[in-house]
């Protein structure tokens, strides 16, 4: 029912679907990039000269923070769809805070690695860990940028349930879940290795 009351912001439904589809395609190409990194990892590892070390436990804390932020994002999106302005604002704000929290936790993890003596140029096994988590963090920072804009809109503009705003929020949500799942994939990959 919510859709019926929406103000038309010059956005035909076909365009809504097309833009969302475009985001899926973009996600496929990012997946290919990380797929290449992990494949390179698998190709490089059996060659030898590979230091084994334990993943710092801080990585698991950061994972929990990121998963929590994904839940807040979903809550914010659903609240927006049902016109619950307060919950929507609160959810978006919390998503942003937890997103930043994730980056801080990652930095702490890298420091823990560094304290173990594992620098980026020590051995290629460590280099891969920095590359995988680093490029993932860059993608999260991109998402944080989008969340910042969403928060400005949420707290700055008048609440309005339009197709255009729904689409924009939907895109942020889609991307945010994606970087969350991407990180879980990378972590499981690193744990299995």
């Amino acid at each position: 029912m919510a859709f019926v009351q929406m103000v038309d912001k010059n956005l035909p439904p076909s365009r809504y679907q097309a833009v969302k589809f475009g985001m899926w395609i973009a996600m496929v190409s990012i997946t290919m990039m990380f797929g290449a990194f992990t494949s390179a990892y698998l190709v490089r590892k059996p060659v030898g000269n590979w230091y084994e070390f334990k993943l710092p436990s801080q990585f698991f804390i950061s994972t929990l923070i990121l998963i929590a932020s994904s839940f807040f994002m979903e809550w914010a999106f659903r609240s927006f769809k049902h016109g619950k302005e307060k919950n929507y604002k609160l959810g978006l704000g919390l998503t942003l805070l937890f997103g930043i929290g994730f980056i801080i936790a990652q930095v702490i993890s890298w420091n823990a690695l560094f304290d173990q003596g594992i620098t980026i140029d020590l051995n290629v096994s460590g280099s891969f860990l920095y590359v995988l988590s680093g490029f993932h963090a860059l993608h999260v920072i991109g998402g944080i940028g989008a969340l910042l804009v969403s928060n400005f809109v949420a707290f700055g503009d008048k609440f309005e349930l339009s197709q255009l705003r729904l689409l924009r929020l939907d895109l942020v949500r889609q991307y945010w879940h994606f970087v969350d799942i991407l990180w879980i994939y990378l972590l499981v990959f690193l744990m299995l290795q």
């Binding site: 190409s29 990039m33 990380f34 290449a36 140029d121």
Partner: peptide, 20 residues
């Protein structure tokens, strides 16, 4: 994107001292 991955590892080899 795979080419981009290859380039990024190359950039690290060039400037950060890694040995991919």
């Amino acid at each position: 994107p795979v080419l981009a991955s290859g380039f990024f590892l190359l950039i690290f080899d060039r400037s950060l001292g890694t040995s991919f």
